[in-house]
Design a protein around this nucleic acid. Structure first.
Lengths: 193, 193, 193, 193
DNA sequence: GATGAATGAGAGTTCATTCAT
DNA sequence: AATGAATGAACTCTCATTCAT
């Protein structure tokens, strides 16, 4: 009774936990194929479960999307921590930046939805979770002289949103992605004015 | 492919022409307020017209969106032509790039829809209309030495899509927008590798 | 644009008017058979119309009920006016009272719903429409000496609600109804205290 | 017919007995607040029990309602017996009648449901339990001369249903209730025809 | 050409009831 | 006996699209 928002973490019973996972997977598929318009019934079908069960786990369609996004971000944040600790200060910022863009390109539709559906998880909230990480990575890079001192963490986040959305909406191949990144990274390195 | 797809150009009768314009305006408002989910009936209401009329002009909701986008792009291309002719070769590329981003930020929702709704007008088709323009502006800039020779027109278009989408989805204030652009422009100017 | 609440009066087009009437009739049937739980789809079917049409006429299930009740009351009020004008002062009150009870017994389920479903038309509002009429009938009866002077119009209305509900819920046969009324009328006539 | 319909009387185990009571109490609350539409899950929650348990005790929602009503009536019948034995013959009928109306006004929603929901306990069955009691009270009153000889027990029951339902549906304040009763009692006393 | 009523598939959501744990 | 997850039919309502007037 204490800690449970709607559709939160893991149920107690094993079968329920299994179902929750299946539903999330099915939803990722369906949203991926048809966008947020994909029907709940279709999700239930693919999860091998009845609609009622979907709604028991996620009282609202939006909650479903939010849960998917949350999982996705969780994974990324874990990787981030590792990089902050162990990466080369001079390049870790670039590495992580590129990594996020690549991930986004892979999870295309989810990232699209992230920005679309009113407010499931507003995009800046989502990316905001990385604010600290980037602030730290930026510090190190500036200390190492690979990024101009005038650049702020907010600048980097804004560029991240851009590149991420560009990758997702523009339908880039890996070469294009690499070239775009290299231009942006050059811009970050260049002394301003 | 030239002059008469469904709902294209201008009807003969004056009242019909007037209605077409009203409907487009109303649709731009409604889509702007409520996204593509805004109902056809609402559009009809705001246009002071009945649903039937909306459908006579645009057989499908998507056609409506396509028409709006087409108008928007038409306007921009006109401005582009002027710039190519009269602008300062060293900076015209940057000026036009910034102009497009600003426009996008203004027409937020329409640009969002551009990328979202399946295929009203796929984003690269839309932006592709500027390919020639940018190719020419890029040439001049490289000749003037304000952009690195390694940069291609496709690179520029990719960056345009990114910044455009970033501006629209990220909810930037003008200062952020300016800073982001200046970093990207610096990246374009910097000699590669 | 001026005078039209939801589901109000009569549409312009003849077919629409016909449909509206059919829907009302079907709804009266269905509500009568199954109470307010009867489904909209069933109503549509019996009206020979699709659900969409039902909802175009009455945007809410409750609106449908309200419309039925309104029609019912309208009819009764018309009869009331006639009685006030032409009836025998000494007995008109009793006549009209008995008439309403009989009507209620006939339209059983509708009257039940009147009181049940939250607030489609709150029962006192409904009966309140007769307040004036009863006030006038009561005056005349008291002048004629057939009702005790201590009785107020509110008393009469309260008794009307009672008898009405009794008739509807109690499943009285005509004899029972007559006996109950005669006792109540005797009570009204009797000098108080 | 005597002791073991579904969900009847008292379970053996102490905890089960406790649960049964809790569920009944919770259901009375919930039905009181939200009518018969109140959800089983809500009832379970308020009883501090799971849905499964509710259904083990009362296989159907309607059974729950029936049980509540049964309890309510049981209590009233006990009081009735006392009155028949000890009350003043001349007034006991009136006293008990008024008492029932007051009770009904208190348990408003339950009494509403009594008459509404198809058949949990049909209203005349419910009130029929008092038939004997009233027959006896009526006898005494007629012997004492406070009620006209022409009045039958069925008349009294019909009036009881009326007043009861009137009180519940009409939203009377105590004064109105008193006035209505006094008129009805006057009617009972008055010599007929 | 315009109107606006009709269509009807489909959506999200609820809830009594069943059943594995 | 109790739990609480699962079921799935049912419900109200929306909306792009068609078509009689």
């Amino acid at each position: 009774m204490a800690s449970s928002e709607s559709g939160s973490a893991a149920p107690r019973r094993a079968d329920a936990r299994r179902n929750r996972a299946r539903i999330l997977a099915a939803a990722e598929q369906v949203f991926g194929d048809q966008g947020f318009a994909g029907s709940t019934e279709e999700i239930a079908r693919r999860a091998g479960v009845s609609v009622g069960t979907v709604f028991r786990h996620f009282p609202t369609k939006r909650d479903l999307l939010a849960a998917i996004v949350k999982d996705l971000l969780q994974g990324l944040e874990n990787e981030a921590d590792r990089l902050v600790r162990d990466g080369d200060p001079a390049t870790a910022l670039f590495t992580f930046f590129a990594h996020l863009v690549a991930e986004a390109a892979e999870k295309k539709t989810i990232v699209e939805l992230l920005a679309d559906v009113g407010t499931a998880v507003p995009i800046d909230t989502a990316i905001g979770g990385f604010a600290d990480t980037f602030a730290r990575l930026l510090d190190k890079a500036q200390a190492a002289g690979t990024v101009d001192r005038d650049v702020t963490a907010d600048d980097v986040l804004a560029l991240l949103i851009s590149t991420t959305q560009g990758a997702v909406r523009g339908g880039w191949d890996p070469r294009r992605q690499e070239r775009v990144l290299s231009i942006i990274f050059a811009g970050l390195a260049a002394p301003r004015r």
